[in-house]
Design a protein around this nucleic acid. Structure first.
Lengths: 213, 213
DNA sequence: GTCTATAAGTCGATAGAC
DNA sequence: GTCTATCGACTTATAGAC
């Protein structure tokens, strides 16, 4: 289960949840209406009764997922804290978010890269409606630089590094574990907790030892 | 175009290249045999003549892509350089690799996460044959710590942060540009070049200013 | 609203001529 | 080896009974 959609009847909610699970698991084309119906405990006909076509159902799911995922992410990027606290808070909260829903980012990124009209339109509409405001996040970083809390650098580069560091483990988990880890002794929960601290340490102080730290 | 497959006739090569392009662009289920045939300038029947089924063709393409991509990545992780040079070299080479083939990592990660038997088997076979040796990469990091070149930390955490930082821009490019960038004035080439320097600076020295640097 | 049955279309795969 | 034509399975979507 991922999240609740609002303003819908119980049955609609049930279908949307089933569709979300299957689309996330199998992707746009790998997902079948029959499997969604089975997952929701109804039949195909009822799917089409509520949502006219697979395309429309998919579109609704994608819009919901990108909207919530990006809203969560962007709200975490906005803050009044000092930069060190801001960085720590973001890493902790975003990692927790990813731990709860590890498959959503990869789903969104892949669907966007395959880039059908449906998906690009949904994204453009959300951006143009002003619902995704990235300016506040960039301002927090800019302010940190102006106040000498952090070194000067293109804020976009900072964002890319922070988000990429948090995201990587979750999108690469299958191959990461296969390549680097003995499944029997690997403690996933522990690794993820350590991941937070490691990212914070690395991005704050760097790999090269410093005298004062 | 991505890369040449070896030990195949010209026509086989043509088909494999077409299949690779279409599978990368559309994914396993989104790709259609007709489109691959069109792309190669032949007809569907000939596809089945050379490769008995879509499944076999897909399997061949996936194996080729994960093999080359991981070989390239792991060979970059192995080195005799001092750690600062090692880090710089890796970031530069891996970013260049990603710039040439920006869609391959996302393709591999998504296919692995959807995790059909085909794909998991291919990966397991490659790993068990000992062709993906990650130990050397971890040793380079361990040696850097033992010699005091870098701070002590789980080497896996270091790897995840470095690779994630390099990878992120390329897998998130569509949404990253839409959210943060004015398409008209954005200089992609320049941003990618700056990306290398920024990652190196950030991971080496951190965001928090230091006296001696 | 919910179901069964089926229409309509798509796509992978093959038969068979050349 | 390469093509056209077609089969057969699967999947989306709808018709129509309840």
């Amino acid at each position: 289960m991922v999240k609740k959609m609002i303003h819908t009847s119980d049955k609609e909610q049930l279908i949307l949840q089933a569709a979300m699970d299957v689309f996330i698991e199998k992707g746009r084309h790998g997902a079948k209406m029959q499997e969604i119906a089975d997952h929701a405990g109804i039949n195909k006909a009822l799917l089409h009764y509520y949502y006219r076509s697979k395309e429309k159902l998919y579109s609704k799911i994608f819009e919901f997922l990108i909207w919530h995922n990006m809203s969560d992410l962007l709200s975490l990027l906005d803050s009044d804290l000092s930069f060190p606290e801001y960085l720590r808070t973001f890493i902790w909260n975003y990692t927790d978010l990813l731990k709860e829903n590890p498959k959503i980012p990869l789903f969104i990124l892949k669907e966007l890269s395959e880039g059908g009209d449906t998906v690009q339109t949904v994204l453009k509409n959300l951006v143009e409606s002003g619902k995704f405001d990235t300016s506040k996040a960039l301002k927090v970083i800019q302010r940190g630089m102006d106040q000498g809390e952090i070194v000067r650098m293109d804020p976009l580069q900072v964002v890319a590094t922070i988000v990429g560091s948090c995201l990587f483990y979750f999108i690469s988990e299958p191959i990461f574990k296969t390549l680097f880890v003995d499944e029997a002794s690997f403690d996933r929960e522990r690794f993820i907790q350590e991941r937070k601290e490691s990212i914070y340490q690395l991005l704050s102080y760097g790999l090269i030892p410093r005298g004062d730290q």
